[in-house]
Design a protein around this nucleic acid. Sequence first.
DNA 1: TCGGCTGCCACTTTTGAAGAGC
DNA 2: AGCTCTTCAAAAGTGGCAGCCG
Length: 361
Amino acid sequence: MQSIRDLKSNFSGPPPPPMAPGPDAYLQGNIRMTLENTELWKTFHEIGTEMIITKPGRRMFPHCKVNLSGLIPCAKYVLLVDMVPEDGFRYKWNKKKWEVAGKAEPQPPCRTYLHPDSPAPGSHWMKQSVSFLKLKLTNNTLDQHGHIILHSMHRYHPRFHIVQADDLFSVRWSVFQTFTFPETSFTAVTAYQNTKITKLKIDHNPFAKGFRDEGTNKKRRANKDPSCLEKRTKASDILNSEEDSPPEDEELPKRKEEDGVKEERYSPWDAEREHRVRTDSPVGADTRDLYSTEQLVPTPASYQSYSTEQPLGQWGGPGPSQYPPPHHLTADYTTQAVHHSYHHGNVAEWSQYPLFSYSCW
DNA sequence: TCGGCTGCCACTTTTGAAGAGC
DNA sequence: AGCTCTTCAAAAGTGGCAGCCG
């Protein structure tokens, strides 16, 4: 098995240019991570992805699913995900677009989701796509279940970390490689603001199938309380007129919606992006630039910055028996780090990762 | 007054236990 | 006895909506 130190050479010096897949895919450190369902993610991203957060915790949809290559088959790895604030702002939905509504609230306790299969050999991670289906988001700052805590009306993006480590406790001595995908950024909300996002979710999420057929939906409510039908019909009418989607094309509702969506690329964020240009936003004017340039991650609470030559030695967690809920880690980011991230299509190249100070639970 | 949050609802998919058949 | 397949109920996951709260 290759030692962790061997990998380190790949983290020193300036970040490499985007790599193309090739015969050297298994070269040490040549780890590649690609996002699955990129088309779906992009469809949401073009409208302005929203993720519901609830007290008991809510799954993401679309959920994060990635493919990995370039790992050492026999070496063990740990996969982690955390949520990084996009910027230092709080947002509000004003009619048809998101607008900055002030400074971000103080960051909630930062938590990292540990993939349930971790640690597992590289061959395991590479043989099939890796799903983070069970990752849950919550707005409950006192959450005891280990869900990732976010603020409503704030923007985040998931960040994936892969660590070569034989077990959870050697993670602290190991090297991180970090990946992000521009299209996975989202706004955390307690109720959907953009009706187009609601429609997309209903169209694509199997659990929301019950909301797909308007007729069925109305009938369902009508059975319980006829007055509801009237209200719902009115609401539906408003929605339809708002969306300019003729009710008669029930045959291809999804396609119609997607077509309509693409006409409004990034429109929900136009105002906000303009705002960023005018202000001292720590990130670029366009979210797409955010991931391809040197980046400060994230805001007030921060990350620790180390030379990439150093092993991760800040894992301050308790012993195994003290780990309450499995699959979750709490990160305490204490200082700021510079984070490089490079993208090539939907391929997130390895980055000069920030080394966290993890205080586990 | 208003925007955001919460709890409940009806519906769906997922999951796992139990039973039947080979 | 052990395995596979089917069935069914419970659990979990959805968005909508009314009402509460700051």
